[in-house]
């Protein structure tokens, strides 16, 4: 026990540093994912045919291949053709592009599940197609997609754990360094697991609150 507490005292400061990096990664990648996924989802549904195709290919590639290979492609592969990124840039870019593909696909589903009558009614009061999308369809689709997006946010928190493989010093990266330094891999990875558990737990609680706020009163699916 004494030994364990000592270990804990030794590793926790580094792990906390790693936690900050992990949170940063998750937040920036998610934001990037929204910035990509929102227009991509809209383009997939309402864009011209060619754009729908292009976005379709983007989604297929990023959903059809493992995140880790995408990460290595960006960090090790692209410099080969003259495009070089720092570790962090590669991590942000890969996670953001990956998340963007999933978010676009979720948004497409949500946009398509908003009833056709909503568009008709909006056009009937004289809105242009763009106006109708902006002020009628999108607000509803965003509410529909929110639970899925918050799952994605939690998934993203966990996905960030692969970036230590390109030596980004996130929580997992720090863990690897500490495990080597103190020769106690099992204990240290267990501690790290607890860290993730707490992070995910907190994220979950926050997102549940957000979801509850965004509920449309009277509609079913209420979580009480």
């Amino acid at each position: 026990m004494q030994e364990f507490l000592e270990l804990l005292g030794n590793v926790v400061p580094s792990l906390l540093q790693g936690t900050v990096v992990t949170l940063q990664l998750a937040a920036v990648s998610l934001a990037l994912g929204v910035a990509i996924g929102l227009p991509a989802g809209l383009g997939r549904v309402y864009g011209p045919r060619w754009l729908q195709r292009v976005i379709g290919v983007y989604i297929t590639v990023f959903q059809g291949t493992p995140l880790l290979i995408q990460l290595f492609m960006v960090y090790y592969g692209l410099p080969d053709v003259g495009i070089t990124f720092s570790r962090f840039a590669a991590a942000y870019l890969t996670l953001g592009l990956n998340s963007g593909a999933y978010q676009a696909e979720y948004l497409r589903g949500a946009l398509q599940s908003v009833g056709e009558g909503q568009m008709t009614a909006a056009r009937a009061i004289g809105m242009s197609k763009g106006q109708a999308i902006r002020s009628i369809i999108l607000p509803q689709a965003l509410r529909l997609v929110l639970p899925t997006w918050s799952n994605e946010a939690i998934a993203m928190l966990k996905y960030t754990a692969v970036v230590f493989l390109i030596a980004v010093p996130d929580l997992m990266g720090q863990a690897k360094i500490m495990a080597a330094k103190y020769f106690a891999p099992i204990a240290i990875y267990m501690i790290v697991a607890v860290f993730y558990l707490v992070l995910v737990g907190i994220a979950y609680l926050i997102l549940r609150q957000v979801e509850r706020r965004a509920q449309i009163p009277g509609l079913t699916g209420e979580v009480e």
Binding site: K158, Y159, T160, A161, V162, M172, A175, P185, I186, Y189, M190, V192, A193, Y196, L197, V200, G201
Partner: peptide, 11 residues
């Protein structure tokens, strides 16, 4: 489910 798969694999 709250812990990254790669952490589980390591442990």
């Amino acid at each position: 489910r709250a812990v990254p798969v790669v952490v589980i694999i390591f442990i």
